[in-house]
Write a protein that binds this DNA or RNA. Structure first.
Lengths: 151, 151
DNA sequence: AAATTATTGACAATCAACTTGTCATAAATC
DNA sequence: GATTTATGACAAGTTGATTGTCAATAATTT
């Protein structure tokens, strides 16, 4: 095992504690709001993708549509999303952020952004870009591997 | 929001799908063995830390001792770990890898290492080192943040 | 040495974030 | 027009944990 491979192995596994800590941080920051982590994640997708159907968001999050449906029902119930007039009711319901939903996710995103910004003070843009590239490479490598392993 | 912060935000969130894909890959590779993902993780810690108690491993994995106890009971039940003669039974049971446990985790680690090695072909050692540094920085930043948020 | 406090193992209940399976209906494709 | 696919709704099960509690033992304080 080369030094490079060993370090890459370690790097890959950093994703576990990192993900753990990020979830904890997000959850702590949401604690005083009425938004849960899973509601936040739907709102985030809608703000990123624009008006979308449940199956589309499921694909983006790589989880089952049935679970996204639950999440979507929750945010709809509190009026954070609304159904769009769907051109000819083509296939399924299009959802979009309501005014309140848009405001809420913007606010959450801003608060999170400030924190991330402070984390970036010690890093250069170049460093972040290269790290991003390496992590993307790892991600697509694992995706390809899993594609192969599934069959 | 600067470009750097935006990219760093994205980078942080890459940990989610990455962790997801890694778990899936590990799980798929273990599918033909008698080892489960959580058993693998105990064996890995024991091989990394040497003989350890349940609470020590819980700390290393940052999960509760009660859950690690379950994991440890499982690997003990199939003879992959054994209890060490504990100097004066000082506080709690020390566990160490049995011969079979050591062989199994070595074999798993080797197979995984080969795959990671192939993923690293397109990357330089320098790139991996820098990425590792950035991700470590992110991780400690989030840990510190969570420490503050918890109080 | 005695009293107090902390740690461990064991067990039970609960939770969050999912997946899997099924059904009816509506839409898209052949 | 017939067949296949997609969607929404609902139910049950799984995994990876957490929280709470208890008794026994070990460590610390007085």
């Amino acid at each position: 095992m080369t030094q490079k491979s060993d370090l890459l192995y370690e790097l890959a596994w950093l994703s576990r504690p990192l993900h753990q800590e990020i979830e904890a941080a997000v959850s702590a920051m949401l604690a005083e709001t009425t938004v849960t982590v899973r509601m936040r994640s739907v709102l985030e997708q809608l703000s990123k993708l624009g008006p979308s159907t449940v199956p589309q968001i499921a694909k983006a999050l790589d989880i089952k549509r049935q679970y996204v449906q639950i999440m979507m029902n929750e945010v709809e119930a509190v009026g954070m999303v609304e159904r769009s007039e769907n051109p000819a009711h083509k296939r399924s319901t299009l959802f979009h952020l309501s005014e309140s939903g848009a405001a809420i996710i913007r606010q959450i995103r801003d608060a999170e952004g400030k924190i991330i910004e402070s984390f970036g003070r010690n890093l250069t843009l170049d460093e972040v870009e290269r790290a991003h590239h390496v992590m993307e490479h790892l991600l697509t490598s694992f995706r390809t591997l899993n594609q192969r392993l599934k069959t």
